[in-house]
């Protein structure tokens, strides 16, 4: 029942829905206004005015946008949990439902809200790309997109669940949300390609789980088009481009593939959720 409550309360609060979509809308607006063109220029300079470059840039940037939506959607949903700490949680805690079950229902509720917000962002991105001439992903890629959405939401949710153990009150949470919402676009390599950043920042991006979500979305959305674009070019050209654009990451000689990133997201989700539970128990004591 708390899952139903979380859905009703979140989606009836228009401000909450709007602000949890704020980062996503900003990225989308910046892409349409100028960032798309800025990011396409180096490719045009190299390949000339070849068809499909705009779709590749769109896939790269908007793939990152869906990863951002997975985190900000969960951030918005967990605001209910934070405000309940001071108010409604007393009410729930005087019911016979165990505290463990209550916590689990909050996490599940936030996951459902995050899933809906991320799917909405994905539909927006797919509609925009298809409308502008990008090929519609095949069934297998559709299934992979759905899989990545679910994994990203689970990881984003666990990450937020961990963070909120250290946040007291809605004001502090709003501040944390604003900071995360502002930084996530950079950390996921949406605004600036990862290859142009200093080595230390690249290292942070590589270990941040949501960057792997962005990489997975980018691989599904642009890999086939990239192979066509780089057809006939030396293989290391394509590999370097993929690394510089955050389509994949390298740890030493190891190039991370789709399933490696999926494993990073899964392990991160388990780790953050476990740590969150440990800290929550400590606080309750």
């Amino acid at each position: 029942m708390l899952i139903k409550r979380q859905l009703l309360v979140f989606f009836r609060d228009r401000a909450a829905v709007f602000f949890s979509l704020m980062s996503v809308l900003m990225i989308f607006a910046l892409y349409i206004l100028f960032l798309g063109n800025v990011l396409a220029q180096p490719l045009r300079a190299f390949f000339g005015d070849v068809a499909g470059i705009d779709n590749i840039v769109g896939g790269l940037m908007l793939g990152g946008l869906v990863a951002v939506a997975a985190l900000t959607g969960c951030l918005g949903a967990f605001e209910i949990f934070v405000s309940d700490k001071k108010r409604a949680s007393m009410d729930f805690m005087t019911s016979p439902t165990s505290r463990r079950k209550l916590s689990l229902q909050y996490v599940l509720g936030s996951s459902v809200v995050g899933l809906i917000m991320t799917l909405a962002a994905l539909v927006l991105v797919m509609a925009y790309l298809t409308f502008n001439g990008a090929p519609l992903p095949g069934l297998q890629n559709m299934a992979l997109l759905l899989f990545t959405v679910i994994l990203s939401v689970l990881c984003g949710n666990a990450f937020v669940f961990f963070i909120i153990q250290f946040v007291n009150g809605t004001n502090a949470y709003a501040a944390v949300s604003a900071v995360v919402g502002s930084l996530i676009g950079f950390v996921a390599g949406v605004f600036v390609p990862i290859g142009t950043m200093p080595a230390a920042v690249q290292w942070i991006i590589r270990i941040f789980p949501m960057s792997h979500s962005a990489a997975m979305f980018r691989q599904i959305l642009v890999d086939e088009q990239l192979e066509q674009l780089f057809y006939g070019a030396p293989a290391e050209y394509l590999e370097n481009f993929r690394l510089s654009q955050g389509i994949t990451y390298a740890f030493g000689d190891l190039i991370i593939n789709f399933w490696h990133s999926a494993a990073v997201l899964t392990l991160s989700a388990i780790t953050f959720f476990t740590l969150g539970l440990i800290f929550m128990k400590k606080r309750q004591k």
Binding site: L8, V9, R12, R87, A88, M90, D91, T94
Partner: peptide, 13 residues
């Protein structure tokens, strides 16, 4: 059953 000093129900529901 408990009636708290402050309102604990959801205003949007």
């Amino acid at each position: 059953g408990v009636v708290f000093q402050t309102a604990v129900l959801d205003e949007l529901l």
